[in-house]
Design a protein around this nucleic acid. Sequence first.
RNA 1: GCCGGGGUAGCUCAGGGGUAGAGCAACGCACUCGUAAUGCGUAGGCCGCGGGUUCAAAUCCCGCCUCCGGCUCCA
Length: 648
Amino acid sequence: MSINITLPDGSVQEHQDGTSGYEIATGIGSRLAKAAVAVTVDGEMWDLHRPIEDDAAISIVTDNTEAGRHVIRHSAAHIMAQAVLDLYADAKFAIGPAIEDGFYYDFEVDEPFTPEDLERIENRMAAIIVEDQSFDRGELSIEEAMETFANQPFKREIIAGVDADEGVDGDSVSIYRNDAFIDLCRGPHLPSTGRLKAYKLTRSAGAYWRGDEKNPQLQRIYGTAWESKKALDTYQTRLEEAAKRDHRKLGAELDLFSFPQELGSGLAVWHPKGGILRRTVEDYSRRTHAEFGYEYVVTPHLAKADLWETSGHLDFYRETMYPAMELDGGEERPGQEYFVKPMNCPFHILIYKSRGRSYRELPLRLFELGTVYRYEMSGVIHGLMRARGFTMDDSHIFSTETQLADELQRLLDFVVMVLRDFGFDEFEADLSTKPDKAVGEPDLWVKAEEYLATALDKSGVTYQLAPGEGAFYGPKIDIHIKDAIGRRWQLSTIQVDFAQPENFDLEYATNHNTKERPVMIHRALLGSIERFIGILTEHYAGAFPPWLSPVQVTVVPVADRHNEYAQEVADLLGERDVRVEVDTADDTVGEKIRTAIVQKNPVVLVVGDSDVDNGTVGMRLRGEETEERGVALADATNQIAELVAPPR
RNA sequence: GCCGGGGUAGCUCAGGGGUAGAGCAACGCACUCGUAAUGCGUAGGCCGCGGGUUCAAAUCCCGCCUCCGGCUCCA
């Protein structure tokens, strides 16, 4: 019997039933067949050699596509598990998926893996690959599978949990066998182990079964796998490039900040150059907030337990707060508990409550660069990205229900403007909606979610819905940016809050002199200033836009006799608010230029005899191959003043 | 917090029971130079902290601190 195979270009080929993706690929061309790793049959990924019995639309999956690499990585995970089970007879294996850029597999073993173990496993994998064992697909009933994996508790747990849409059908599962190794798997796989060309085991780590720290901790081995040695090399180069951008490394090299061990984990000190960077960001933040109708406030770093009781933080957030300190106690009587603030909201609420509020004052936008402390688990601290003390560009907006839609729109436009000013152009948002357990009137939830969605649409920010992911007290928008090397970072948050106005019994007088409860919006644009500067550092690889660069211009005198003129040039620039340094070190011109470039300073001015005579400078701009000599001083200062001007 | 790997000069790293090392940076001297590293010299160390083993510990053992990677990506 013959069947009709529809190819991606729409053409239809006639084949014998029981043909395979591999045969079809071979018919099209030997190069395609060679690159093929799997086939999609009516949208479902199949093994290359699995017989196709009916008419179908197919597409050959080649090894240099993301789908193809997924197959390669998944197969690599199997081969690794096989190697581990060969070497460690008692190992229990759990799950081993393909992930971005690689794969992992989790095992329960007596002793955690050491780097030497990884080497042994890698060698064993090489032997399995040389044997070129074929991956054979099979199906087992649930009972048979339970039997087959009698000694594999994790596999049995998975089998017990399969849904109809995960297994072949409701009561059977698919398995893959190569040589004596059998794994429960949806597939598809490479035709044989010999097709794994380029792989590397990268690290081992503890990982909780199903990601839950209440479950036993398994040993996870991570690896990477690619279609060719060359692709693997490219990947490794990419990692090295990313490592060069690491803000912790650049922070030290550019003398921006450090994390002295004497201070404590997760706490940074800002050096003078980092201080300039930070102040520039903060000044921008204060300036733009003022322009957008925010009122600047300042609040203390601690507050009594009562406040955190009322706000609910002690109930919901206590383990992330620094522990209480008891103050003002005496011999006889107990003291009062104080907590360092993990958030600024209760303080802003107290400012709202400091007197009666009228509808005429709303929306009231209180803004603070508020420094908070959070006791993050020691294992998650990561430079400025995850610190224990940081400063938020935090604001709480108190608005009437009827103002909410406009206010959210205005806010979102503000966010987009700010992020663009820092050089981010690609945004994506998540809109998180009402979870099952929630406070606040259902009507109000629906309205608020609708306003948020409308605001996103109008601002042209693409977004994904995260149903049920909102906090219990209100819906929110999270905004992610994409950095220069394609990574996503969550930056801004806009969180509607129906609970706090209730907790603190907030109200305002309406135009009929009745009392109404305001709605509250928590929002941060840059989020943590520390983290934001970390992200900026990595985005720009330390080469900050001129308005943010701690040193904007370095003046290099060719010889000592030009020092005086160099200083005159610097003074002129200083008058134009340009941050400028004169390098009078006893180095060669080449060395001084190199130092300025390595420090990623945007402008280097070289001055020598001819410049002194003619009132000119030699100007080298960051990112340009060559310098421009003999630039008239007035032209240079004008050009530089323009270059370093902030976006607004 | 849990699992693994680290902590030696300001930085990057070598050394692994018996005298503490290199390169870069710093400092000094010479050179006064026109666009990415001039030469020579000098100084710099509680080998993360505490305890133990030993005739002897940077090195071996124990505890702590701290840094790095992982603990979401569901056969």
